[in-house]
């Protein structure tokens, strides 16, 4: 992504964002192809999905065309892998645990894991901060707002 290639990303790279959109449009058309379309005066549930799917494909083709002919504008940002991985892990663990383990353990783990998205974090720091944040969350959600979620697994 960087270095010598920076000035002139390859055609495949330039066309990628449009191609992903094109794929979305095609998948949409394939899924919606069996939906009843009806007529213009009496549209079925499949009419608008088909129109929208075709529009997405057309726009994606246009975007690919523009990105390929004008390389100067096609410059994509770098990926933040660390943030992506730890934020995703934190949310998935919350989603996986909250029904079984209750709100307090899942909040604690979500805070703790998400803190590792920052590359300069220290473990002890995480322990203290996650405990404090969990206490605050328990007070806010269960004591003040009285949300109907169990605090611990039953």
């Amino acid at each position: 992504m960087q270095g010598a290639e920076q000035d002139q990303p390859s055609i495949a790279r330039r066309a990628m964002s449009g191609a992903v959109l094109l794929a979305i449009g095609v998948v949409m058309l394939v899924v919606a192809w069996d939906y009843p379309v009806g007529q213009l005066t009496q549209m079925g549930p499949g009419f608008i999905p088909r129109v929208i799917g075709l529009m997405i494909c057309a726009l994606a083709a246009g975007i690919i065309f523009i990105d390929v002919i004008s390389p100067n504008e096609a410059r994509d940002a770098r990926m933040h892998w660390r943030g992506l991985i730890f934020v995703s892990a934190a949310i998935l663990i919350f989603a996986g645990l909250v029904d079984y383990a209750g709100l307090v353990p899942s909040m604690f783990l979500a805070v703790a894991i998400s803190m590792f998205a920052d590359d300069q974090v220290r473990p002890l720091h995480v322990l203290v901060y996650a405990s404090l944040a969990t206490l605050g969350g328990w007070l806010l959600f269960l004591v003040v707002l009285e949300l109907p979620i169990p605090a611990f697994w039953r």
Partner: peptide
């Protein structure tokens, strides 16, 4: 941000008590 993540998780989850909504949010 860790606090915001938890608030989003709890907010989405309590909206319909749905784990699927949390995963969809991600």
């Amino acid at each position: 941000y860790p606090v915001i993540i938890v608030m989003i998780c709890v907010g989405v989850y309590s909206h319909r008590t749905s784990v699927t909504d949390v995963v969809l949010t991600l």
